[in-house]
Design a protein around this nucleic acid. Structure first.
Lengths: 345, 345
DNA sequence: GTGAAAGCGCTAACAC
DNA sequence: GTGTTAGCGCTTTCAC
């Protein structure tokens, strides 16, 4: 180690060093840094020059302690291997950083304990706000209690008393399934995360709804839950294909699963959409460039991130409100090349 | 607003509240929280119960001010739309969070000013460490100066005096290009970020080297730089295809560009690999499931992230060392379906 | 215009 | 075992 004394490393310049070097008081330096406009031009210039020369960097922790703000917002996502969340992160990061905040990224991996631990950590760090997307939230009380200290926005996760960004995903799934039915499909599979995740539970109900509305029996073996990793779309589809009477079409709970399905189908020697049709959900970038291009239900990913971040920042500056806000964004079916009538029609 | 007085919101419980409620001193509470083992069982239990009941959350900013540690590490990436970086982030996040740190994600978008601003912000927050990957780093002095205060690890970016994680990417590109040459290609295009980014500059040199070694002329019009957004692979390839005598094969600087190339080629009605061969670089997940599967040079993405994070954490606890460490990880050509001999061979 | 001084919430000697 | 006290680096009244 370069420094024999552990404390020499980490010895940082403080406002006092600048003050004494400049021959002024620390309050003067502080005022210059925060350009309060109260300090004379000459002093200001002198202090600024010394700060520059000595490479002084203000300590945001000390500042934050006093101001009760950390200029940090946390973002808790369930799965980094799903491009949908990455595009969401990207748009949140953009807004947040433009407003001077830094993003703390927390990947819960759909693990409830990890999620809880992250919330605790963010609270200890006194994050100014937290955005959740598609989470478990088994214990909403934890979040509700934080609400008085930390601004919170939930995306695709309805929590009583918390502002949220939703989409018309219920209708979206119905549209997707209806498209399949209109093409002539009757044996339709559904692959999704599972009922534990609020965001997808809703989509399952929509799937059921669409079938029932069209007088099609809901077959339990066509519904596969439990996709908690990146490749689960692949495994869920394999299960579907191994069925004695496999479905002729699959509605996926998200595009990531749809592409997992692509792989399983390619492997089994079947052709999309000739042998089997696929409808995705989200409309991630890849949906457009895959082969065949994916028919999917689009969600306005970019707008969702933007709205979430803007709402959060607004909440940070205004404190908790009495009525909680809910923004609903539209979904839309986009027909591309992965859907066709079933064979023999 | 719920709270008429702005200060009531944000009023947080402190160690003092707990102490007075428990009828002990604040140091006792502090000791219980940090389970120093010095406090009697009965007192410990009593204090813990009160902390639980009152939902007290320690203030990490106050703690950090004293301990000179923020339990935060920053990660600066150039482009979130490239899956390579996302996989990298994922593996860094995993290691970092397992060690009790929180990840501050900074997307520079290959913008030099933004990168600089992020570094400043992370320094102000007193991040315990920073990981850079494939950055500009126009002014290494800034980083070098921070080195005494903040642990730093650079990935695919050599900076004098900074620990780094490299791969044999020079050899990797040579292997990729050699594969193309061995197949019979002589007209080979190269699409990459550009010479400003150190990580890719190196790959360009390797490309040149491979051609020269085989006695093939380096044609300037076959080398396209300037891919700074997600879709640039697409645009760069279009330029290549519009040439009067277009290349029969393309070596891409990364897989993201390779898939942009796929799109441009599909659009122009050509077939991969029949009409044109593509070699990627990175071996992102998608390379395996694309159609055709992408021949590419793999980098051990997951290991790179892991090694970077572990090295950083080690540096954090040990302080700067005299000799800087350099870890070199292997690349490997993976031949899949996107390469074939040129037409008419 | 500028300085002195009182904390922000916490940890860690140092006492007893 | 537990309490007292002195700061960590900064902002912000309140003086002058």
């Amino acid at each position: 180690m370069v420094f024999p004394n552990e404390n020499d490393y980490k010895k940082q310049l403080t406002i006092c060093d600048i003050a004494s070097k400049a021959g002024v008081s620390i309050s003067t330096v502080s005022r210059v840094i925060n350009d309060s406009g109260l300090i004379g031009k000459k002093t200001t210039l002198k202090v600024q020059k010394i700060i520059e020369e000595m490479c002084y960097i203000p300590n945001e922790m000390a500042r934050g302690l006093l101001r009760k703000a950390s200029k940090t917002v946390g973002l808790i996502v369930p799965d980094l291997s799903n491009p949908f969340f990455v595009e969401f992160i990207k748009s949140v990061e953009e807004v947040v950083s433009r407003n001077g905040y830094i993003l703390s990224l927390c990947n819960s991996n759909l693990n409830h304990d990890k999620e809880k631990q992250y919330i605790q950590q963010l609270a200890e760090k006194r994050a100014d706000g937290i955005i959740f997307i598609s989470t478990f939230v088994k214990n909403p009380e934890i979040i509700l209690r934080l609400r008085d200290q930390i601004a919170i926005v939930a995306v695709q996760t309805e929590i009583e008393g918390i502002d949220c960004i939703e989409t018309t995903d219920y209708l979206g799934i119905i549209e997707g399934v209806q498209h399949l039915i209109d093409l002539g499909h009757k044996k339709i599979g559904f692959i999704y995360w599972g009922p534990e995740v609020k965001a997808t539970q809703n989509r399952y109900k929509a799937f059921e709804h669409a079938l029932i509305k069209n007088g099609i029996e809901v077959k339990e073996e066509y519904i596969i839950a439990g996709g908690f990793t990146g490749e689960s779309g692949y495994f869920m589809t394999k299960k579907l294909l191994e069925l004695p009477d496999p479905p002729t079409a699959i509605q996926a709970g998200n595009d990531s699963f749809a592409f997992g399905a692509y792989l399983a189908i390619m492997e089994s020697g079947l052709k999309i959409p000739d042998d089997i049709s696929i409808v995705g959900f989200d409309n991630i970038m890849m949906a457009n460039i895959s082969n065949p291009p994916l028919t999917t239900v689009s969600q306005p990913i970019y707008t969702m991130g933007q709205e979430a971040a803007e709402l959060l920042i607004q909440n940070i500056s205004q404190g908790p409100k009495e009525v909680n806000k809910k923004i609903v964004l539209p979904t839309k079916l986009i027909v591309r090349g992965s859907t066709a009538p079933p064979k023999g029609e």
